[in-house]
Design a binder for these strands. Structure first.
Length: 493
RNA sequence: GGCCCCAUGGUCAAGUGGACUAAGACACCGCCCUUUCACGGCGGUAACGCGGGUUCGAAUCCCGCUGGGGUCACCA
């Protein structure tokens, strides 16, 4: 195992987002590629919005994607605990260290005061920034404020006029001026660390060597670099990957439709398709290959080939990949994944017996050719479960009403009645092959009415598959029902 | 608005000064395959944001502009 240590550190304030999933994936791929360690840390310092439900949801989504972690919440490890709210004493210790060293100071400003100050800056057309009011409070003033009952937050003192160079593996050196930063809070007045502080403490203590995260964190990085320096710790490597954008080229968010991994699972996307798609968003292997197994991604992945420019989420491409994986993944797996959709639609109820499952596998083998998502399996499979079918549209009714159609239907019904079973698809295909000649019809004139009689539609899978799948009983009853329909139809005319 | 990032077809993208008459993929269009539809195969439409440099030579390097995005919390 190499020295590479990376982490994914979501805050459990909602389901796993597409962007978060990609960050997790890139970290995971980087760890696996380099024989390193992948850590999962939960950043739940936002007490208001964090929840265990979200945390569990995120873990479930990561597992669904096939990502596993070597250390972290749920699996433990030598650098735990891995949930920030369980590490509070640690942050307080380092906060006290900074305060004692004179690098941080208590700030008694209330939210109202800070808001007012911000307004003043804005009204003067200046950039809102903390003015440093509490930086030079005398001990008496501090005591007075304490006596008022004010609980201070802890601010990190930033020296202005300094250039901070953030070395970034995907962007190169990025300069920042400390003047634009201002003293920022590292411990809130309730004793909870802020993101910028906790992230530094944890990344150092957990031995993180590469911080791979979304670009929105780039402008936070100089603050963190300052903290590393103040604490005397080495700065890790950074790699800020570009954002995922919606159709309107703005950062992807709820209003762009489905943005959580959960939603894609529920819509019937396969994890391998989502992983393949996400891997190609913002990274490219350089060749012409588009379909990648996870093993191939691990082998090919490198930070050097991560793109600097943001990428628009292209549902069309995800759909294409998903359709591909539905057709090419092992049929049993596809069937298992599709089963919940069939059950939810009421097509399959109760325990699935091995015999039923074998039939479902055959069914999915036929139906999957038409799907871009597993959810669509329902509409294509329905006809195979229905007790009876009706011509579904005007075109179908016309076909079934063709004058010579009755002949084929009758001939086929006789053939089927005489058959032992229809399980042998090849045998059924052979019978079908001779059907037009025996009915004295052109192929199209013969097959189309049969199709409508059996499925109610003019389009669909190859007929011998349909017939074999339906089974003797259903085929005969549908053929007879179609014949009866023709009679009713003739009288009506 | 300040700071920061980014800039090749509608989208993802290859390209790292000459092999560019700019790859591949998705989407779109056409043809073929086929008893139908879908799959598949073949082909087509479509791009280096603009302006200056540097260079014998620029999609590739530099500067400016424009455009897009991110960030400016006691949220992460």
């Amino acid at each position: 195992m190499s020295g590479v240590r990376v982490r994914f550190a979501p805050s459990p304030t909602g389901p796993l987002h597409i962007g978060g999933a990609r960050s997790a994936l890139f970290n995971w791929l980087f760890a696996r590629k380099n024989g390193g360690t992948f850590i999962l840390r939960i950043e739940d310092t936002d007490l208001e919005r964090s929840s265990r439900e979200s945390e569990e949801n995120i873990l479930r989504a990561l597992r669904w994607l096939g990502l596993d972690w070597d250390e972290g919440v749920d699996v433990g490890g030598p650098h735990g605990p891995y949930r920030q709210t369980e590490r509070l004493e640690i942050y307080r210790r380092y906060a006290a260290q900074l305060e004692q060293a004179g690098l941080a100071y208590p700030c008694y400003c209330t939210e109202e005061e800070l808001a007012r100050e911000r307004e003043e800056f804005l009204s003067r057309g200046e950039m809102p920034r903390y003015g440093g009011r509490c930086r030079r409070l005398s001990p008496e003033e501090r005591r007075r404020l304490e006596e008022e009952g004010r609980r201070p937050a802890l601010r990190f003192a930033v020296t202005p006029g300094e250039t901070i160079l953030v070395r970034d593996l995907v962007r190169g050196p990025v300069p920042f001026d400390s003047t634009g930063i201002g003293d920022f809070i590292i411990m809130k007045s309730d004793g909870i660390p802020t993101y910028n502080f906790a992230v530094v403490v944890d990344d150092y203590l957990m031995g993180v060597t590469h911080v791979i995260r979304a670009e929105e964190h780039l402008s936070n990085t100089p603050r963190q670099v300052l903290l590393y320096r103040a604490l005397g710790w080495p700065v890790p490597e950074f790699a800020h990957i570009s954002l995922i954008l919606g159709e309107d080229r703005a950062k992807m968010s709820k209003r762009h439709g489905a943005t959580s991994i959960d939603q894609y699972r529920e819509m019937g996307y396969l994890p391998e398709a989502v992983v393949n798609f996400l891997a190609l968003l913002g990274w490219s292997p350089g060749g012409e290959q588009e379909i990648f197994t996870v093993e191939e991604l691990v082998r090919e992945f490198s930070l050097e080939r991560v793109s600097k420019s943001p990428a628009v989420f292209d549902l069309n491409k995800l759909n294409w990949l998903n359709a591909h994986y539905i057709r090419h993944s092992p049929l049993e797996r596809v069937t298992e994944l599709a089963l919940p959709f069939l059950q939810r639609a009421g097509l399959v109820a109760g325990e699935v017996t091995p015999e039923q499952f074998r039939w479902l596998v055959r069914l999915m083998g036929v139906v999957r050719e038409y799907l871009t998502t597993l959810a669509e399996a329902v509409e294509h499979a329905r006809v195979f479960f229905a007790a009876e079918v009706e011509p579904e549209d005007e075109e179908a009714r016309e076909v079934l009403a063709w004058e010579e159609a009755g002949r084929v239907l009758a001939v086929l019904a006789e053939k089927v009645k005489g058959a032992e079973s229809l399980d042998d698809e090849a045998a059924v295909a052979a019978v079908l092959k001779k059907l037009p000649k025996e009915a004295g019809l052109a192929p199209r004139r013969a097959y189309l009415p049969v199709r409508v009689a059996l499925t109610g539609r003019t389009q669909g899978p190859e007929l011998h598959l349909v017939i074999s799948l339906l089974g003797k009983e259903k085929v005969i009853s549908r053929l007879q029902r179609a014949l009866a329909w023709r009679e009713g139809h003739a009288k009506a005319n």
